[in-house]
């Protein structure tokens, strides 16, 4: 098979799959004869092509893989199609998520030490949403649960991998003025399962 034919194969796989496909996923299907490097190159070409076409959707690197997604400017129409209200996470959930993301593997006590408030129910609600997962137990008295982010976290927040998060230094560089602003849209809490 010619290289450009593989590109079509890869494109069809991405089109037909709901979750991000990793390069390994793709190689498992197209066979070892295609090198990782080649697949990666073809994916880059596809990404560039969709970018060039200026369609309403594009191919993005997300959740350690590749996925077709609509562009943000079309969100209002799609939301109305699906009859959904934009439900964003609360500040408490975002803070907790940020702590888990940067400090993982992390136990609840560490989260609470940083936030200064009880965080058990927030962690539970993040678990329910599949954004956070239990990695195991820490071998200290009480054997507390150890938390980390789930791949779903990367998918939902459109991050390629955990290194896609800004570093602590970069965050420090984000100036006060950014902090002064509230999040872009009013924070509407999803139904919150109390612990």
């Amino acid at each position: 098979m010619q290289q450009h034919e593989f590109k079509g194969v890869i494109e069809s796989l991405l089109f037909a799959n709901q979750h991000p496909l990793t390069i390994d996923n793709i190689i498992r299907i197209v066979g070892d004869e295609v090198e990782k490097k080649v697949v990666k190159g073809l994916l880059a070409e596809l990404m560039a092509e969709y970018r060039g076409m200026e369609r309403s959707f594009h191919l993005v690197e997300v959740g350690e893989g590749y996925q077709f997604r609509t562009k943000t400017e079309y969100a209002p129409w799609i939301r109305s199609l699906h009859k959904i209200k934009p439900a964003r996470l609360r500040q408490s959930a975002l803070e907790t998520l940020a702590i888990v993301a940067y400090r993982q593997p992390v136990v609840r006590a560490e989260v609470e030490q940083i936030r200064g408030v009880d965080s058990g129910w927030v962690l539970n609600s993040l678990l329910e949403k599949g954004l956070v997962k239990i990695l195991g137990r820490k071998e200290v008295p009480g054997r507390p649960l150890v938390y980390g982010t789930d791949r779903r976290f990367l998918e939902v927040f459109g991050l390629r991998d955990l290194s896609g998060l800004p570093t602590i230094q970069e965050l420090d560089a984000l100036k006060e003025e950014e902090q002064a602003e509230a999040p872009p849209e009013p924070i509407i809490e999803e139904e919150e399962g109390a612990a």
Partner: peptide, 19 residues
């Protein structure tokens, strides 16, 4: 971490901003 949370809140969310 509050800043990190704000940063996260600026991300385009799947099922809200992108589909």
């Amino acid at each position: 971490f509050k800043e990190a949370a704000i940063h996260l809140s600026h991300q385009a969310l799947l099922g809200v901003d992108v589909f």
